[in-house]
């Protein structure tokens, strides 16, 4: 990959594009939060009335899920050849 010069790469994966994509993405994130100032969010349960609830809730739960999966992975992961060879006679 690194021996490919930037210009040989597909335009979408050039470093410059990626940088632009990040900026664009972050702008969109900001936009959704800002939109909340204009749209009245009526919560049902209290907690969800907090500002930008969905934003930090989404970010937070995702982080928890990724970390949780990672921890479970220590227990549950096996080489993907785990089942090979010993279940041939069922």
């Amino acid at each position: 990959m690194s021996d490919l010069s930037e210009l040989d790469k597909h335009w979408l994966v050039r470093k410059a594009t990626i940088k632009k994509l990040w900026i664009l993405g972050l702008l969109m994130l900001a936009l959704t939060v800002v939109a909340e100032l204009r749209v009245h969010m009526h919560g049902e349960f209290g907690l969800d009335e907090l500002f930008a609830f969905n934003a930090w809730y989404g970010l937070g739960t995702c982080a928890i899920m990724v970390v949780g999966a990672k921890i479970l992975g220590y227990v549950l992961k096996r080489p993907d050849t785990y089942y090979e060879g010993d279940d041939h006679d069922h």
């Binding site: 994130l29 959704t32 969905n54 995702c62 990672k70 080489p79």
Partner: peptide
């Protein structure tokens, strides 16, 4: 909001999600 911020979480935590030759 919900979806885009979870997308952010994905890219922020990408190192944690490196694929390995494993099954669970």
């Amino acid at each position: 909001q919900l979806l885009l911020f979870s997308g952010l979480a994905f890219f922020l935590m990408l190192p944690l999600m490196k694929r390995t030759l494993t099954l669970s």
